[in-house]
């Protein structure tokens, strides 16, 4: 999984990011990279079997605590 994901991310970097990088808009470049690295690191962590905290139970507990559910 990590292999395939890395490949896909790499290709995105190659095909999608390079033109943006060349566009010399630093804000976009940083925004792009930060989102990109965030998602990649999540993927890698999942690939290594780390249990990431999902937002779904959190939202559920918030709603339950509000007492509607």
């Amino acid at each position: 999984m990590i292999l395939i994901m890395t490949l896909v991310y790499g290709l995105f970097l190659l095909l999608d990011f390079i033109p943006i990088y060349r566009g010399k808009n630093r804000k976009i470049t940083w925004l792009y990279l930060s989102l990109f690295i965030l998602s990649y690191s999540m993927t890698v962590l999942i690939g290594f079997g780390v249990n990431l905290p999902s937002p779904a139970p959190l939202i559920k507990s918030i709603i339950t605590s509000l007492g509607i559910f």
């Binding site: 395939i4 490949l7 896909v8 290709l11 995105f12 095909l15």
Partner: peptide
């Protein structure tokens, strides 16, 4: 359209 490439590679 090069995005087809990763799919083929997969």
């Amino acid at each position: 359209k090069f995005l087809f490439l990763p799919l083929i590679m997969i």
